[in-house]
Computed example of a mutant assay.
Amino acid sequence: MPELMAPSTRLHAAWLEAHREWGPGVHEDGFGLLPTDEVVSELGFARWVARLTAENGVEGCTYRWIVEGDRVVGGIALRHSFTEFVRNAGHIGYGIRPSARRRGLATWALRRILDEARARGMGRVLIVCAADNVASAKTIERRGGTLEGIRDTELGPARRYWVLLTEQGG
């Protein structure tokens, strides 16, 4: 049974295993990983986890790792305010490691983070995915996403969805 957990140094080895599976680069959506983060050493990983934890303020971001047992299978992030970054990337970003995909984990995690957004008093959230990412588009649509349209971005065409956070929505 999966669970959403706050980032933890206890999961260093498990997180590194997931990171290696994704391959080189900083592309694990939902983890808040920056090119300047050093996550291999225990000290660097602890600094990164501390930064993620510190960002959990009103204007910041809530990071959660999707964990099954002792295995990190993905990450999801909820950005709390509508900044310029959010205007382009969305309030929510998520990613599932390749070996854990096609099991409904993203839909499961998205439902839970939408509950968090609702609890924070957010009325609606923007979720953006690559225009050719059919799996992510279906995930967003399953959670009530309404397509605003497709826009060109720095990373290529992207679908933009809004999810209303009412009693019935999301």
Score class of each variant (00 low, 15 high):
131 A>V: 04
161 Y>C: 04
109 A>T: 09
67 V>K: 07
44 G>W: 12
78 L>V: 03
38 E>Q: 10
28 E>D: 09
42 E>Q: 06
146 T>V: 12
164 L>K: 07
50 A>L: 01
25 G>L: 11
166 T>M: 01
67 V>F: 07
7 P>S: 07
156 G>P: 14
98 P>L: 08
70 D>F: 04
157 P>Q: 12
106 A>H: 03
152 D>G: 13
48 W>R: 08
107 T>V: 12
10 R>D: 13
80 H>A: 12
113 I>Q: 01
63 Y>G: 00
168 Q>F: 08
40 V>E: 14
117 A>I: 09
101 R>A: 02
70 D>S: 14
110 L>G: 03
47 R>E: 15
147 L>M: 10
1 M>E: 09
95 G>Q: 00
46 A>V: 08
128 V>Q: 01
128 V>R: 00
162 W>L: 03
162 W>Q: 01
21 E>D: 12
65 W>Q: 06
13 A>H: 14
55 E>K: 14
37 D>E: 13
129 C>T: 14
141 E>L: 01
9 T>L: 06
143 R>V: 11
158 A>M: 04
107 T>M: 01
138 K>M: 06
58 V>S: 05
74 G>C: 10
100 A>H: 07
82 F>A: 11
108 W>V: 03
34 L>F: 07
85 F>H: 09
66 I>A: 05
32 G>I: 13
43 L>E: 15
106 A>E: 02
143 R>S: 12
117 A>M: 10
153 T>W: 03
83 T>A: 11
14 A>I: 13
66 I>R: 07
3 E>T: 15
54 A>G: 09
52 L>Q: 13
137 A>Y: 04
14 A>P: 05
28 E>I: 15
102 R>L: 08
168 Q>N: 11
139 T>A: 07
102 R>D: 08
69 G>R: 06
33 L>V: 15
60 G>H: 05
80 H>G: 03
35 P>I: 13
95 G>Y: 00
93 G>Q: 06
59 E>D: 15
2 P>G: 02
170 G>D: 01
121 G>S: 10
147 L>V: 03
119 A>R: 11
37 D>K: 06
150 I>P: 00
98 P>G: 09
30 G>V: 07
90 G>L: 02
94 Y>H: 05
141 E>S: 01
71 R>K: 08
52 L>F: 02
144 G>F: 02
120 R>C: 11
71 R>Y: 05
145 G>K: 04
72 V>I: 13
107 T>S: 14
109 A>R: 06
131 A>E: 14
163 V>K: 00
22 W>V: 08
109 A>F: 08
2 P>D: 06
2 P>T: 07
47 R>L: 12
115 D>E: 15
